[in-house]
Simulated scan of single mutants.
Amino acid sequence: MFVPGLHSILSKIDVTVTEGGTGSSLGYAVKRFQPMLQSVTLDAVGPGLVARVEGFVRPRPVEQERLRDLAALVEPGAFAAVSALIVGGSRGLGAATAKLIAAGGGAVCITYASGAEEAEAVAREIRDAGGRCQVLRYDAAEPAAPQLVALAMRPSQLYHFATPRIFRQKRAPFEPACLDEMMRVYNTAFYELSQFCLERGDAVAAFYPSTSAIDEAPRDTLEYVMAKIAGETLAATLARTLPNLRTVIERLPRVKTDQTATIFPVPAAAPSALMLPIIRRMSAAA
């Protein structure tokens, strides 16, 4: 059933108040559904009203990849020497990274800015399979060190998946406030986290996830692209100038997550398919 329901986005509603009423309860009938546009039109009638509602089918929440499935992709003990701080590890790329490393015998700490229940669910899945996982709250808009003081490991790897909302309505082609937010999360936070990990460990491999949007230049993502270009430069410069820090930079395509879900289907890669080769590179570097 497409409408009404959880997976619907309201576009337009016209309501006419009538004298008397039609029946004793509210009812509806779907008048048109356009699969190509994922649009729905329905008529509703009830006591004292007649209405026409137009909407779209909203993408269903993306199901997280399960550890038991990911474990089949990883050689036992492949990441036994890894201690990974995974920033933004409650969903998507971060959750898949945590599960892959844990499946290979590594220890992980995942952070979340919101969604504590999701983070705890990832940790519980890892622990139930015999893995090691710590959970900490971390907001990339705030200084890193005070928030991570309870970190129980000495990280050998850092994965930086923190992100603000990427796709948003804009009033102008360029919005300085939006760029400031993007730069804080994608640049300043990455620098602070790298410094923090170096202070905790002897050597650190840090992953900077860039984006293929740099080459594609999609509409309305100028600030995002600018911040990611700057982040690539930052990550490369840190690796040249900070002893014992190695960075891996990869321009990732659109990934299948709630953040990138759209009304109209767009090809997107599974997080594990992208991250497993990168984790192997990071582990070889470490």
Rank of each mutant, 00 (worst) to 15 (best):
G106H: 00
P35Q: 08
E142L: 09
D43W: 02
R91F: 01
M226P: 01
F2E: 14
I126Y: 05
A121P: 10
E181I: 01
P209Q: 06
A270K: 15
V3Y: 09
L198S: 00
S194V: 06
M183N: 10
L70I: 15
A162R: 01
A98K: 03
V87M: 02
E54A: 13
G46T: 01
R127V: 00
T241F: 14
S8W: 11
L158T: 11
M182K: 05
P164M: 00
D258K: 01
Q157L: 11
E65V: 09
Q157D: 12
V57A: 12
P173R: 07
R68F: 11
T241E: 15
F190L: 06
E142H: 14
P267N: 09
V57M: 08
L245V: 01
D139P: 14
E63H: 12
A51L: 05
A261Y: 06
F56M: 02
R246Q: 09
V3N: 10
A144D: 09
L252I: 05
R124S: 05
L10C: 05
R251M: 10
F56K: 02
A285G: 09
S25C: 09
P209R: 02
A72V: 13
R52S: 10
I9T: 01
G46I: 03
V108W: 03
A261M: 13
R280E: 08
R127Q: 07
A189S: 07
A205K: 02
D215A: 12
L100N: 05
C109T: 15
A140Q: 08
E54V: 13
Q259A: 13
I263R: 04
I126C: 00
A261V: 03
L49E: 12
D128G: 04
K256I: 09
Y186H: 14
R251P: 08
T257G: 10
A189I: 06
S90F: 10
A236M: 08
A268R: 07
R171L: 15
S39V: 04
C133R: 03
A144N: 03
S39P: 06
D258P: 12
A141V: 13
G5F: 04
